[in-house]
């Protein structure tokens, strides 16, 4: 049976993997669902660790770097982005 990848992108409150999920997205390579913007009010897991406990594997860890000079008080993207995967068999 071929395997397909499902991705879960969790944005944590802080670099702590046990900290609260504040934003999330899912991408489904099985074609069985089609997640979209604004489709959920509550995150699927309370933390990255809670997702790991349910079988999701962390495949990307956010790097931390010092703020560029002059940019110390500017904000843009969500900083603590963890990408997790599950592999699912399809027919």
């Amino acid at each position: 049976m071929p395997l397909r990848q499902k991705l879960l992108v969790l944005y944590a409150h802080s670099p702590d993997l046990k900290s609260r999920v504040v934003s999330w997205a899912t991408y489904d390579g099985t074609g069985n669902s089609s997640p979209t913007s604004g489709d959920e009010d509550k995150p699927p897991y309370g933390s990255v660790v809670a997702a790991m406990e349910d079988g999701w594997r962390v495949i990307q860890f956010p790097q931390q770097s010092m703020a560029h000079p002059g940019m110390e008080y500017h904000t843009s993207y969500l900083r603590y982005e963890y990408i997790l995967e599950q592999l699912e068999e399809i027919d």
């Binding site: 944005y11 504040v22 934003s23 999330w24 997640p35 913007s37 959920e40 995150p43 843009s76 993207y77």
Partner: peptide, 27 residues
Amino acid sequence: MILPGSQYRRVSESDIGRYQNFLGQLP
């Protein structure tokens, strides 16, 4: 749907297109 408090973030148009849901998003 809007994201309250997002207006000072420095992003260009759909640079944020990877995101789907946020705590506090407001339809």
